[in-house]
Design a protein around this nucleic acid. Structure first.
Lengths: 245, 245
DNA sequence: GCGCCTTGGTGATCAAGATCACATCCGGGC
DNA sequence: GCCCGGATGTGATCTTGATCACCAAGGCGC
């Protein structure tokens, strides 16, 4: 059985301890782009800038571990982050894969628990880190931010609910087809790169061998083409049909 | 295969069309108890009272159907509500079972989508219904309410994530044990009443026959006792151990 | 070039639980 | 009491997909 230690080894950056802090230079520019802050004026943004730290994480870095990390909230500026849990056998399940603009973290203030949840950069990431008190302050004094936050949370809720339904109702091939299509969104060439079968298995809640087998079936059926760490979509409608179960 | 029509037949109240409106009498009293409004003063409460409708639903009533119902937000005052989806085969999955104080509904404003999600009273319920514009108004003008809302949403998110993990990782017996324990909370006699095997199956994402079989195993192992529509817990620690997988 | 690690390929086996098919059983309505 | 529908009990399959056991190929560091 693949265990927790193995995961860290497999992907975790070998670079020095923690994420690298960013110079004050590009901080403001990055912050202004964020969804959650978009309603604020320049003066507010400057204030936020003073109270946040910005860091980057390279692909694969697990930058949040329950217990170890304090009570902070992350705002993802660039890149993509996987929030996942590990079960007692060491099996990993990706709860959510969040995009730039999303807020996440351990915040009892907002009840936003990351109980047992890890966060890892699935791509090169730029993150903004806020302390509990900063967030409290911000939410109380800037209602617009609270509203944006609300919106984000509601979207994540909706997403997880759909995921729950998917895991409960659909077969692994269906889930896999959906996952591939989802990951291909945004890539105009209809190609998913840098994703191992193991990654897909973690995402759909299955196993590496099963994913390999099913991907090969997909290829046999002319739905996709396969290369090392790369999947090319050849028949998107076909995949979509499969994804509907 | 059990289908959608069957569900309505099985449980839906045969009473006239919609839920019964409540006299203005107890409205304010009920509203003040709600979590989400608890920070408001009497004057604000009065204002809210003016703009909300209060209704009751009897057990089993499906009072929200996607598409049919408009863009409203419910605040559950008393009772318990199941939010669920139906898959193409007619199989039902309970996404969340929400308690008094919870807010839910179709609200694009807050991104709070109920796409394809139904709501049914699993107990006698008192509900407060707010329109989209009322909610917008409230959230913009009463930041405290937005904060409470945030808190609620974050809790629900956390719950669904745990549920997702459970469905993905744990066996049906484990899920069932957890579900029984969960439902027995609050009942000091350690008894779960008025719940059919089908209800449990819908809740844990399994099938009626499977649930029946496993419950009988539980009884054989001295964990529970069984009666028609009733389960008595005899060995809570044993169930808990099972629930941990 | 060599060794090693990561990724991918595949057969064999197995267990869980979905699915089908009925048989009761119980309570309520008439 | 009789009938009906919902709730439950249970046997008999059948599939899916988890799990085990290896092997092969690609890529990288040295």
């Amino acid at each position: 059985m693949r265990i927790l230690g193995g995961i860290s080894r497999r992907r975790q950056s070998k670079s020095p301890a923690t994420a690298r802090p960013l110079g004050a230079s590009g901080k403001l520019a990055l912050l202004s782009e964020t969804d959650i802050f978009r309603d604020l004026g320049p003066r507010d943004m400057a204030e936020i800038e003073r109270m946040t730290a910005m860091t980057t994480c390279r692909r694969g870095k697990v930058f949040y571990t329950p217990g170890e990390t304090g009570e902070v909230l992350f705002v993802l500026k660039h890149g993509r982050v996987n929030l996942f849990r590990i079960n007692p056998d060491g099996k990993k399940l990706v709860l959510a894969s969040v995009d730039a603009g999303t807020v996440f973290g351990e915040m009892s203030l907002v009840g936003q628990g990351m109980h047992d949840t890890f966060a890892e950069a699935s791509e090169e990431c730029t993150l903004c880190v806020m302390s509990r008190s900063d967030v409290e302050h911000l939410l109380v004094n800037k209602p617009q931010v609270a509203l944006r936050f609300l919106e984000l949370l509601a979207n994540r809720l909706s997403e997880v609910e759909t995921r729950l339904e998917t895991v409960a109702f659909k077969s692994v091939p269906a889930r896999l087809a959906a996952e591939i299509l989802h990951r291909a969104e945004g890539a105009p060439d209809g190609r998913v790169d840098g994703v191992s079968h193991q990654d897909l298995a973690d995402a759909v809640g299955s196993y590496r061998e099963t994913v390999t087998r099913i991907l090969n079936e997909f290829r046999r059926d002319g739905l996709i083409e396969l290369d090392r760490l790369s999947i090319g979509i050849k028949d998107a409608p076909g995949l979509k049909a499969l994804a509907e179960s």
